[in-house]
Design a protein around this nucleic acid. Sequence first.
DNA 1: AGCCGTGATGACACTTGATGTCATCCCAAG
DNA 2: CTTGGGATGACATCAAGTGTCATCACGGCT
Lengths: 188, 188
Amino acid sequence: MGRWEPDTRGRLERAAIELYLEQGFAQTTVAQITRHAGLTTRTFFRHFLDKRDVLFVGMDELTERVAKAIAAAPAAWPAIKAAASGMNIAAAALQLRRDEAQDRRKLINTTPELRERELMAFAAVAKTVDGALSERGTDERVARVTAEAVLAAFRVAFEYWGEHPDRELPQLVDETLDELKRALGSDA
Amino acid sequence: MGRWEPDTRGRLERAAIELYLEQGFAQTTVAQITRHAGLTTRTFFRHFLDKRDVLFVGMDELTERVAKAIAAAPAAWPAIKAAASGMNIAAAALQLRRDEAQDRRKLINTTPELRERELMAFAAVAKTVDGALSERGTDERVARVTAEAVLAAFRVAFEYWGEHPDRELPQLVDETLDELKRALGSDA
DNA sequence: AGCCGTGATGACACTTGATGTCATCCCAAG
DNA sequence: CTTGGGATGACATCAAGTGTCATCACGGCT
């Protein structure tokens, strides 16, 4: 057996989320987390950028998948359709971990600090979508605004999903995008 | 003369921005700011929520004006047009303080911490726009997604403005919104 | 078997942001 | 002249986050 118990990162992650859910994010100190995991506070910051980071692991990997989906979309598709297909990948992934995602959502919704971080995560996805669209040859500004708009729709659908957990997120994203199209088209 | 020099808040604000621009945000400590202003660190936190807050004063007031503009828009206008008129108010206000706004933008763009806060500020405006649209009788989800989309366009225009400071922000916002409409409409 | 480099963790000190609390002093209302 | 409130100073304290060095297991190499 090793010098230390295995799965340091996993233990930290589980301890953190358990404490966050139990007593709130702000009320939880890193010292408490590491005590639960049998580690030192220094080690926590070797595995996570900061206290909030724990709740956003896996984001990068998901973002990668979104980019790949957009790159794999038929070249004939307009940017909006390609981008939407990327959002569907993300939505499906979150739907698969519904309960976990909803727990995280509640935590984030009640903690401004976490909300900030979530917005940064969304912004990172938007930047990736932007890049993937540009890669397809979409005009620069169109790529940017399409990426931002698609993520705007995703955010709204995601929030709505929190209020209606029994709905399916991918479908909500589709509906929201349709509503956006109608709303923007109604300008005559 | 009073016990203290007047305009505490203004002195803090000026000292902070001067130091942020001169040596960077992260490298500036609150102690340095208050030393420059001849005050104590405790007093800084009585006037500002945190170190970043200094760069976002006036946001609330501007947001209020946006809400009023939307409320004052002709009832016959579709939600998107009313929301866009609100964005024009904001864009015009920033255009009036172009140099200051651009300085702030550069600072924010090079500091993740500040970027986070900026996203929160945008989110707050989106929520206000959402509320103003709902007030006009717009359907709930349409109001939400329209607000988010309009702010998405604003963000893109704002970023573009940073790269082309000689362009006029209000016009950039209009152009970006038009591009968004085309991009979403091209879905056949 | 014994040596050694590498990587992960512990231990410790330190800086800084942020908050609570009480004392102090100006000022304005009465 | 008194009094009460608002703003600030002074002080203590906590928690986040970082730098640094020591420590120890493990795997490869000889």
